[in-house]
Computed example of a mutant assay.
Amino acid sequence: MKTYFKKYAKYFDYPLFFTFVLLCLFGLVMIYSSSMFWAVNTLGQAPDYFYKRQLVNLILAMVTFLIGFIIPYKRYKDRSMMLFIIGAMLFLLIAVFFVGYSPGNSGAKSWLNLGLFNLQPSELAKLGMILYFAAFFTKKRETGKIDIINESIVPPIGVFMVVLFFIALEPDMGAIGLLTIIVLSVMAASGMKFKTFGKIIGTLIGGMLAVFLLLFIFKDSFFTERRMGRLKAYLDPFKDADAFGYQMVNGYYAIGSGGVKGLGLGQSVQKMGYLPEPQTDFILAIISEELGTFGIAVVLFGLGFIVYRSMRIAIKAKDPLARMIAAGVGSWIGIQTFVNVGGLSGIIPLTGVPLPFISYGGTSVILLSLAMGILANVSMMVKREQYNNERLE
């Protein structure tokens, strides 16, 4: 292990790592600030209740980052690793269907209680799909079959449809949308011909239409009052400001109150019982209220830098596996950020998607940290390969 670090340390992507760590620490501070009132007055806990829990989550996240960083990314195309990833992902998604629960009456039975901690398998599916699709198409590329449509797409698309089906049963439409875009990003980076990519998109659309047809058949259980209320709140939150539009309206008040400079760290008014669970997917509203435009700029710049770095790694990588993993992780963070900020600002309907590295929650930050560790390993190997090629020239 010592020899491994000594050999590769000079290629480590320090800007990527420090941006990731600073975002996590900034999120920890804002979780403490935003959750104090909610912890005391709603849950009857100490003011630092959510802060301490997230601190434990971040310690575990650093461990998973290290694991992702140590394992050479090329191991993910091993057949045994591919089978393990798919098996674990499908097992957990099926388990949710039978023994999953819905936290806080959210309407989506998407969590598993594992005793020591709770797990959201749809988050694991995001990373699992990136690694599986990247490994699968890398193998097809090595055998020259990446553009043979029947041999290239049936297995991964079949697995993907099964994953979407079980997530739709929860149901978690936000996760379905995110997963679809992530998978398309990985395939777009595979190097396949545009014609083949177009056929794959057509196959995906057909599969998703089949999933939605099943949902329509069971529409009474899917189109619940809560979900229809969220759609109405998106169209006009002030029309139903005391019910389904309540969270969005108070989020707008928080953003508007902060202005450019903000009210000051810890000085938010909306977190004092007006904005429900402000430490979760609406934490950016509290950041805006307390730190103003500057606070939002710090968060979005940090996340934007990670996405930029990921795509830059993908562009530089000559190894298709490295390219697809980097593109997948970058698109995951970028799209999830857009969905969170878009829901908060009213651009798209609310989906309850957390803001990467900032929102409270163990599953999200731990799995994103694992993805960042894998990305750091990819970056290191790409930089080493580039350095060796320059020396040869």
Results as ranks from 00 to 15, higher is better:
residue 361 G to P: 09
residue 371 A to K: 10
residue 375 L to R: 00
residue 237 P to N: 14
residue 230 R to I: 11
residue 147 D to G: 01
residue 367 L to R: 15
residue 180 T to Q: 05
residue 215 L to A: 07
residue 141 R to H: 12
residue 393 E to G: 13
residue 369 S to P: 03
residue 22 L to A: 12
residue 290 E to M: 09
residue 195 K to A: 12
residue 234 Y to T: 04
residue 309 R to L: 10
residue 200 I to V: 07
residue 365 V to W: 05
residue 200 I to L: 04
residue 161 M to I: 05
residue 220 D to R: 08
residue 301 F to N: 02
residue 337 T to K: 03
residue 81 M to Y: 14
residue 393 E to Y: 13
residue 193 K to M: 07
residue 243 A to I: 04
residue 275 L to A: 00
residue 131 L to P: 00
residue 125 A to F: 06
residue 108 A to I: 11
residue 142 E to L: 15
residue 332 W to P: 15
residue 318 K to L: 03
residue 93 L to S: 03
residue 229 G to A: 00
residue 167 I to V: 14
residue 286 I to S: 15
residue 302 G to N: 09
residue 358 I to T: 06
residue 34 S to I: 05
residue 120 Q to I: 00
residue 27 G to H: 00
residue 323 R to N: 15
residue 64 T to S: 15
residue 244 F to W: 12
residue 302 G to H: 12
residue 343 G to N: 13
residue 136 F to N: 14
residue 97 F to Y: 11
residue 3 T to M: 13
residue 301 F to R: 12
residue 92 L to P: 00
residue 71 I to A: 04
residue 162 V to Y: 02
residue 95 A to D: 04
residue 151 E to P: 03
residue 124 L to S: 04
residue 29 V to Q: 13
residue 371 A to T: 00
residue 326 A to V: 11
residue 148 I to T: 12
residue 326 A to E: 03
residue 33 S to M: 00
residue 55 L to K: 08
residue 145 K to V: 08
residue 203 T to H: 01
residue 276 P to T: 15
residue 212 F to Y: 09
residue 200 I to F: 12
residue 158 G to D: 02
residue 277 E to I: 03
residue 302 G to T: 01
residue 384 R to N: 06
residue 237 P to I: 13
residue 377 N to C: 09
residue 199 K to F: 13
residue 45 Q to T: 14
residue 68 G to H: 02
residue 249 V to A: 14
residue 341 V to E: 00
residue 186 V to Y: 03
residue 294 F to V: 01
residue 269 V to E: 08
residue 74 K to G: 15
residue 367 L to K: 11
residue 314 A to Q: 12
residue 254 A to I: 04
